[in-house]
Amino acid sequence: MSDQTTTMKVRVRDRSAEAPWGVGLTNPIVRTVEISANCPVCDGPRGVPHNLNQVDDGARYSVDVWTNPCGHTDPYTAVIKEAAALRPKTDGEAS
């Protein structure tokens, strides 16, 4: 990875924090996370995030989407994991 430490904030849906399918109402959980401004695969720049409004079973929410110039995609599950790895641990939090 490059020596650049620039980051970007994006809003992504965190499906892993939601109730499993078929259990209760759909309640999309959107998190604002900080990730590297560089592609984790090739270290090229990531695309510029822009808003996307969505509806899931009547629940409305907004997330960010972007297209990396290199062509690599950033699945939200990978973005959530990257953000967790970059986030400093707090006292009492498992590493």
Rank of each mutant, 00 (worst) to 15 (best):
R11Y: 02
N53L: 05
A83S: 14
R46V: 04
N38F: 06
A83V: 08
A19V: 07
D43I: 07
V30N: 10
C70R: 03
M8Q: 11
I80K: 08
P75I: 05
D14Y: 13
R11A: 13
C70E: 09
T7R: 15
T6Y: 11
R15C: 08
A84L: 15
V41E: 12
T73V: 14
N53R: 05
V48C: 00
D56Q: 12
P20G: 08
C39H: 02
R13W: 03
I29S: 08
R46T: 13
L52R: 12
A17W: 10
S62F: 01
V55T: 11
G58A: 09
P20M: 14
V41T: 13
A59M: 11
P88I: 06
G71L: 05
D57Q: 12
C39E: 02
P40F: 00
L86R: 01
V12T: 14
V79G: 03
H50L: 00
R87Y: 03
D43N: 13
P49Q: 10
D14I: 09
E34P: 02
R31F: 03
V10S: 12
A85D: 12
S16Q: 15
L25R: 15
N51V: 07
R46I: 06
M8F: 06
L52M: 06
P45M: 07
C42D: 13
I35G: 01
G58P: 04
T73L: 10
P20Y: 11
R11N: 11
I35P: 01
